[in-house]
Simulated scan of single mutants.
Amino acid sequence: MAASQPPARSAAKTALRDRLVTARRRRPLSERAEVAAAVAAHLLAAPEVRRAATVAAYVAVGDEPGTAPLLDALEASGRRVLLPVLLPDDDLDWAAYAGPGSLARAGRGLLEPVGRRLGHEAVATADVVLVPGLAVSPRGDRLGRGGGSYDRALARVPVGTVTCVLLHDEEVGLDVPVDAHDLPVTAAVSPAGVVRLR
């Protein structure tokens, strides 16, 4: 998909990604636990999440805003939590989260659930879908890492389902270059709170 991007837009996306990844790497390690706790608190208080029976989420890695406190709180509250499994073609399968012991190391430094695979379409059963990203515009245009995995997953999510990207405060409300295959999200959460988009 990325090969069909106009050169100027592709270059703009690459430059923005590079800038944001560099800024994330410069964040103090001591801040990570605070960011993860704040993001979890905001999402757990959000009416959409409080009403949700099933939440599709992910295990944050590296310098992404942490998700461990959120995943554990959702699972402890009795909600069904779906986590992605990255396939060789960069598409996503899904499996249920059953606590930290249900995760195993996978390629690209990821942690993935070890349970029964539920198929590509399982994401469509979620009431709320949480996705990673590097930035989001006020209209909901999300900048990802460039692999297209989450754009494919978002294409399977029914209209009206809450889709939310987890970010740092300064990554919300940026001008994000968009291609035809880029799918928007309806909300963003950062330590400052939840912002509804579009």
Rank of each mutant, 00 (worst) to 15 (best):
V131M: 08
A187K: 00
R105W: 00
S30Q: 11
E34H: 14
D90P: 00
G66H: 03
A192T: 01
L83C: 08
R156P: 03
A41I: 02
E64T: 02
L197N: 12
D72Q: 15
A15M: 09
L130G: 07
V176T: 01
L143A: 08
P191Q: 04
S77P: 02
A68D: 14
A188S: 10
H42W: 05
D93T: 08
A46I: 00
R9V: 15
R198T: 13
Q5M: 12
G133Y: 03
L143N: 09
L74G: 09
G160E: 07
L174V: 09
V162C: 13
A122L: 00
V35I: 12
V195H: 14
D127H: 13
Q5G: 12
V61N: 05
L118M: 13
V129L: 05
L130S: 03
G119W: 11
A23I: 04
A155F: 11
S77M: 02
L111R: 15
L82V: 03
A98G: 15
P6M: 02
A135G: 08
V165D: 10
R79T: 03
R26H: 13
Y58S: 00
V131I: 12
P65I: 08
H168F: 14
R26W: 01
P191S: 08
R108P: 00
L16E: 13
A45N: 06
A23Q: 13
A2W: 12
E64V: 03
R9H: 09
T163Q: 09
V189L: 05
L44W: 02
P47D: 15
A3V: 12
G173Y: 10
G160Y: 10
R117S: 14
R196Y: 11
D93F: 03
E48V: 05
E171M: 09
Q5I: 06
L43C: 06
Y150T: 06
A56R: 07
G109E: 01
D127Y: 07
P28W: 03
A188I: 02
R26F: 00
T14Q: 15
L197Y: 11
A12E: 15
L143T: 05
A180R: 13
A124W: 00
P138M: 09
G66M: 04
G66I: 06
R108W: 15
V136A: 11
G101W: 10
P6A: 12
D151Q: 06
E75L: 03
G160K: 04
A36T: 03
A180Q: 01
T14P: 00
T186C: 00
V49Y: 05
D127I: 08
T125Q: 13
R116H: 12
L174Q: 09
V81M: 03
L118G: 02
L167E: 08
G147K: 11
